[in-house]
Structure formats: C-alpha cells, structure tokens
Amino acid sequence: MTAPLLLREDAGGIATLTLNAPEKLNALSDAMLAALRDEFTRLMEDRSARVVILKGAGKAFCAGHDLKEMQAGRQAPDKGRAYFADLFARCSEVMQMIPALPQPVIAEVHGIATAAGCQLVASCDMALASEEARFGVNGVNIGLFCSTPMVALSRNVPRKAAFEMLTTGAFIPAGRAMALGLVNRVVAADALATETRALAETVASKLTAAVKIGKRAFYEQVEMGLAQAYEHTAAVMVENMLWRDTEEGISAFLDKRKPDWAES
C-alpha cells in the first residue's frame, strides 16, 4: 500500500500533520494540496484539536510546487494557462485556510522551505525552525517570480527584506529568518520536535474558546485602520468577558486557584 501523502497524529489536543512525500521534498503537488485542503476542512469542525503542528517528513520541510507536474501542464492546447490558473487558485485557497482555522497552526521547519514551501511557513500562525533550516522564495532563479508566495512573505517580514529575497532568489539561514520575523525561534535540530511540542502544549492548555475568538480577531484587526481595529476588538473583548468560563478564569486567578472551566 502507498503511504498517505499527509499523515495525522492526535495526542493531548494537538493534531500533528506531516507532509509525507520525502522523495519529492514534500512538494505541494496537486495531490498534496488536495490532502491539505481536505484535512484543513476537517479541522474546521474538529473540537478535539486545540492546536495544529505542521511539519515535513525526510530531509526537508517543503520545496514548493511540483515543477514536473507544472511542466506536464504545458502539454494542454492552451499551453497550460487553465491548469496554472487553477493550480495557483487552489494553492492560495489552502494558504488562506490556515489563518481561518480556529486552531493556532505551528510550522515545525527543518531543512529547506522554499518558494510555496516558504509561503506555507509564512501562512502559519507561528513557526519554529532548526538551526540548519534555510528559507527562500527562489523562483526567480528559474525565471518564475514567486508572486503568490510574496503575499504571505510580505505580511511577515519587512518590505525591503521581502523584496530582496524575491528578486535575488537567495536563501536565508534560520537566524536571519527569526530576525526578520518569519519564524518565532530557532532551536537545535535535535530539540526541534520537543520545543515545538512544548509550545503547542502551552497554547493547548489555554481556554480554547478564548484562543479561537482571539485568533479570528487577530487576523480581522490587522486589515483595519487603527480606530476601526480598536472598536472591533473592544466588541470582541466584551463578548469574551461575558462567558461563564472567562468569569471563572478571573475568579480563579484572584482566588489563586486553578480555574474550573466547563469546556475542560
């Protein structure tokens, strides 16, 4: 039997998704994009999963689109125009599903994360990288500017840094990626899984409904002007304050005891 392209393991309220095409450096093939879309769709309604970890099997996180598939698409009478339009639309849909998920998504990055693979990291809510990880939007090296990866990248790192990466195709090391804000922290390779799991467990221990409403508000307010953002988030906090579990959480803090949350 052929192993699934996307593996899922659940433990302690954490769903770990593993891109499982190591022989292709976990490229975002048509099948891989479909598997991610299907799993993200399931996670939208999954109340048991509080946090998601996304990682890659083998020696890399993700090398971007499957170039052999893309070249094969050129054989159509329109030289691939319809296929390419559909491919980039499907990829964009998958990337936008990540911030829309109720669960925080943490990328666990080792090896390379290039082109759409770097886009995948940038689309996640948080990211940890091993010291040997490298990041690049290197399509320009083969004559294809990484225009769709640019959307997520330019929302993570300063504009000039993003533009340099996009126009030079140069790889940046994990330390530089952290300095730019693409990843949260860099750890030793042998500690990557443990540190990622520890971060996921910390987030999973919080009131799930509060994290869910907060994640949604986070992405909503960053697209707003300052005054509108404050108005919107104030309304979110009012709703949050009226919850039974929030009242219990505040009372527990004041009483110096562990909260007895109904959702637990």
Rank of each mutant, 00 (worst) to 15 (best):
A209T: 03
L192P: 01
D78F: 02
N138L: 13
L54R: 08
V187W: 04
G58M: 04
I98G: 01
S264K: 13
L54K: 09
M224A: 06
T167Q: 08
Q119F: 06
R176Q: 14
T196C: 14
G80D: 05
K256E: 12
L182K: 06
R90H: 10
V236Q: 14
T208F: 11
R42G: 08
A262K: 13
A11I: 08
T196F: 09
G73T: 01
C146E: 15
H65N: 12
E231I: 12
V121T: 01
T168D: 14
R244V: 12
I250S: 02
K68P: 00
F163C: 10
A174P: 05
A100T: 03
N240T: 13
A76Q: 14
V151I: 15
Q96D: 11
R159D: 04
R185S: 10
F145K: 15
E223M: 11
L128W: 03
A15M: 07
G181F: 04
R90Y: 04
G58W: 02
G181H: 08
L25H: 00
T41A: 14
K55I: 04
L5D: 12
G12V: 06
I142H: 04
A191Y: 00
K256S: 11
R197Q: 14
F40G: 09
K206L: 12
D125S: 02
A234C: 13
L28M: 08
S154H: 14
G214C: 10
V151E: 07
A191N: 13
A129H: 06
A35C: 08
L192Q: 06
A11R: 03
N20Q: 10
E239R: 10
E223A: 15
R74E: 01
K24R: 15
L7T: 15
V105F: 05
L54Q: 02
Q103L: 03
L226H: 09
A152V: 07
A63D: 07
V183P: 06
M224K: 13
M224V: 03
D86R: 12
K59P: 01
T114S: 14
A49V: 12
A3L: 15
F171R: 13
A115G: 01
E69K: 09
L87S: 12
R90S: 09
D78Y: 01
E108K: 08
A3P: 00
L199T: 13
C118N: 03
P158A: 03
D30Y: 11
A193P: 04
D255E: 15
R8Q: 15
A76H: 06
V105A: 02
A217D: 10
M237I: 12
T148I: 13
F88I: 14
M126N: 00
E93W: 07
P104A: 09
T167C: 09
V222S: 11
A127E: 05
R159I: 01
L128I: 08
A152G: 07
T196H: 06
V121S: 00
N156F: 00
V52M: 04
T233Y: 08
Y230N: 11
I106H: 05
P102F: 00
L17M: 12
A76S: 15
A200F: 02
V203S: 02
G143H: 10
